[in-house]
Structures are given as C-alpha cells and as structure tokens.
C-alpha cells in the first residue's frame, strides 16, 4: 500500500479579480497521486499550477475542498508529529541560536532537555555545521541557513519530509552542493520525500519519480520514472540518459506554459 494516496483532491480559493468582483479560482482539480514509502518524489509543473498548495495540504497547513487524502491508510490529520517541511525562506527563528533552532521540533514533542541537545548536535554534525551552534541565523549564509533548516526537520525524525522549492533562493554553486548533500543524507535512511520544484534538472537529479503537473487547475498529468543509478553525483547531469529525460520533460513543460499563456496568464 502506498504511503500517501490522494484521490480526486480539489482546492479552490476565493479571490477578487481586477474588477474587484469575487471569483472562484480552482487551484487543484481531480488531483490523484500515490506516493510510495521511502521514495523521493518530485512535483514539477509550471508556476501557479498548485504544487505548493498540495504540499501545504500534506503539511496540514491548508485545507482541501473535495476528494480524499490517506496517509498510511488513514485520513490526513491537521496536526501531526510525523511530518516535516522545509521552506524556501528557511523559516529559522532569528532570536534563537542555531542549536536552539534545531531543538524547536523536539521541544514541541516534549523531549527532555539533555536529550534535545544531544540529538540537535548529532544532526548539526550531519550537515557539517557543528562549529556554528552558538551563532544566530543572521550571521550565516543562505546555504548554511537552509542546511540548518534541513537538520532541524531531520532532528525530530518525521517519516514524511516535505520540501517546498528548498534551494530556489540559493546561488547555483550552493544549490548544486546542497542537492548532492541532501541525496547523501537521504540515502542513509530513505525517508519518504515530496519535493516541489520548478527546475527540471533538479527534479531529474534527485527523484525516483517525477510527477508532472498540468497548468491550473492542477492535476497530475504524467508520472515519469527516473531510472538513473544511485548513488547519484554531479556527473550524472552529463549522461546521455539524463539529457533524454530532460528533453522529454522540457517538451511537456513547454506545452503547459503555452497553455497558461493562451489563457492570458493567471490572476
């Protein structure tokens, strides 16, 4: 049985159009997706297609209007201790030192203080930032902040990891380093990861499967298996296989982008 089963999920928002009238905006419609235990799945699609909305729903941060979402065979809970999300904007608490930021999730779970500190240190080491435990977030670079945010999520050991374009705000070099680093971490315990991205290369490099979404109202248009061998490194980007998949996905994305433009954009 799949870890997550989404069946016919709908989500619409009420917005005001340019004339100030209320209008219904269908973001997700008939969204079906199975996500397997332990897989790295990317959600890829044109901007505004609702991929982040689906991730928010999975994280318990947004509601859905129709359909069903089952996690481990049970209805999705709004509050849960078993999932973690990494945002593009890091979401670190600026008044807490690095180590205290890592402890937030453990505090929420009422884990005793000495154990919190030990676990936090362990994950800080995992992302290679042990020397920075007493620094404040504003003293760190963007790449370091995102490493801390990833370590924070891993520290409370969720069995579902949600990532909302986590590397989109980073420079190219840092992004590539973090992609490989995330893969290395993931290989060690193979937690289920749902990874939202608008970068085709990123999706191919990281994923077991890429779920390709249509333009809004968003639904899964196609699922592409990425059969590239693991563990993957930078070099894989230069392989013929990689280029073939990229070309295929490019074509699909292009079609959806054109569709969006022929609607006259969105919002």
């Amino acid at each position: 049985m799949a870890k997550i089963q989404a069946r016919g999920v709908n989500r619409e928002f009420q917005i005001r159009n340019t004339l100030g009238r209320k209008e219904r905006l269908k973001v997700l419609e008939g969204f079906d997706l199975d996500i397997n235990e332990g897989e790295f799945l990317s959600l890829l699609g044109p901007s505004g297609c609702g991929k982040s909305t689906f991730l928010s729903i999975l994280a318990g941060l947004d509601k859905y209007d129709g359909g069903d979402i089952l996690v481990d065979g049970r209805q999705l809970q709004e509050r849960s201790f078993s999932r973690g999300i990494v945002f593009q904007s890091y979401a670190l608490l600026p008044w807490r030192t690095v180590i205290k930021n890592l402890e937030v999730g453990l505090e929420i779970r009422h884990i005793p203080k000495h154990e919190r500190r030990r676990t936090a240190r362990q994950y800080l080491e995992l992302v290679g930032l042990a020397a920075f435990e007493n620094q404040y977030p504003h003293q760190l670079s963007g790449g370091m902040k995102q490493r801390i945010a990833i370590a924070r999520v891993l520290a409370y050991q969720p069995d579902l990891l949600l990532m909302d374009e986590p590397f989109a705000a980073l420079d190219a070099q840092t992004r590539e380093n973090l992609q490989i680093e995330l893969l290395r971490i993931w290989e060690t315990d193979k937690k289920t990861i749902v990874f939202v991205t608008h970068s085709i290369d990123e999706a191919i490099l990281m994923s077991d499967r890429v779920a390709f979404m249509s333009a809004r109202p968003g639904h899964i248009k196609e699922i592409i298996e990425i059969d590239l061998p693991r563990p993957r490194t930078e070099d894989i980007r230069n392989s013929a296989e990689f280029a073939k998949i990229r070309k295929n996905l490019w074509g699909m994305l292009q079609d959806e982008v054109l569709k969006v433009q022929s609607y006259g954009g969105y919002l």
Partner: peptide, 11 residues
C-alpha cells in the same frame, strides 16, 4: 512562515 513552520511540526 515562522508560524506555518511551527504548525507543521505539530506545535
């Protein structure tokens, strides 16, 4: 986003 982050951790 700080509130959303805490909420997603089950706070």
């Amino acid at each position: 986003v700080l509130i959303r982050s805490a909420k997603s951790m089950g706070a």
